[in-house]
Simulated assay, not measured.
Amino acid sequence: MAGTFVLKRSADGFMFSLLAGNGQVVLTSERYASKDGALNGIQSVMTNAADDTRYAMNDAGTHFSLRAANGQVIGSSETYSSPAAAREGTQAVKRAADGAQIDDQT
C-alpha cells in the first residue's frame, strides 16, 4: 500500500518522513538545507527503495539506512527489536514508497 512523504521545515532546514499506509513512520530523512534538496531526497527514495542492495543494516541488524547509488544516506529507520523486524521494515519502506504522495507541510 502506498504511503505518504511528509515534508516539513525543521529548525535548520527541511526534512521528510515516509509514512506507511497505516500512518507509521518507516523512514526519516537527513536534514536538507533547502526545500529543493528535500524534494530531491524524496525522489531518490522513490528511485532507490525497491533495490535491496541500497539498504545497509547496522552491525546488530536492528537499524537500517537507505542509500543512494553514490552511497549517500537518504533515510534511516527506527531501531527495531530484532534483525527480522528490521528486515520487515525494509519491506515496509518498499511498499510505502511505491506510488507515495507528498504532503508538503512547509
Rank of each mutant, 00 (worst) to 15 (best):
M1Y: 09
A2V: 13
T4V: 12
T4C: 07
F5I: 00
V6R: 15
K8T: 13
K8F: 09
R9F: 00
S10R: 12
D12K: 14
D12S: 14
F14H: 08
M15D: 15
F16T: 02
L18Q: 03
L19P: 04
A20D: 04
G21W: 09
G21V: 11
Q24V: 11
Q24E: 14
V25Y: 07
V25A: 11
V26C: 03
V26R: 02
S29V: 03
S34L: 10
S34C: 06
K35A: 06
D36R: 14
G37T: 06
A38D: 06
N40A: 14
N40G: 15
G41I: 02
I42D: 03
I42N: 05
I42Q: 01
I42E: 05
Q43D: 13
S44P: 02
V45R: 05
M46A: 14
M46G: 13
T47I: 11
T47K: 11
N48T: 08
N48R: 05
N48C: 09
A49M: 00
A49N: 00
A50S: 12
D52H: 07
A56W: 11
D59C: 10
D59Y: 09
A60K: 12
A60G: 06
G61L: 04
F64C: 03
S65H: 15
S65L: 13
L66Y: 01
A68D: 04
A68E: 02
G75S: 01
S77Y: 03
S77V: 00
S77F: 03
T79Q: 10
T79P: 00
Y80F: 11
Y80E: 02
S82H: 05
A86W: 02
E88S: 15
G89A: 03
T90K: 07
A92H: 12
V93P: 05
V93A: 01
R95W: 10
R95G: 09
A96W: 04
A97Q: 01
G99A: 05
Q101E: 14
Q101C: 07
I102A: 06
D104Q: 04
Q105P: 01
Q105R: 15
T106F: 07
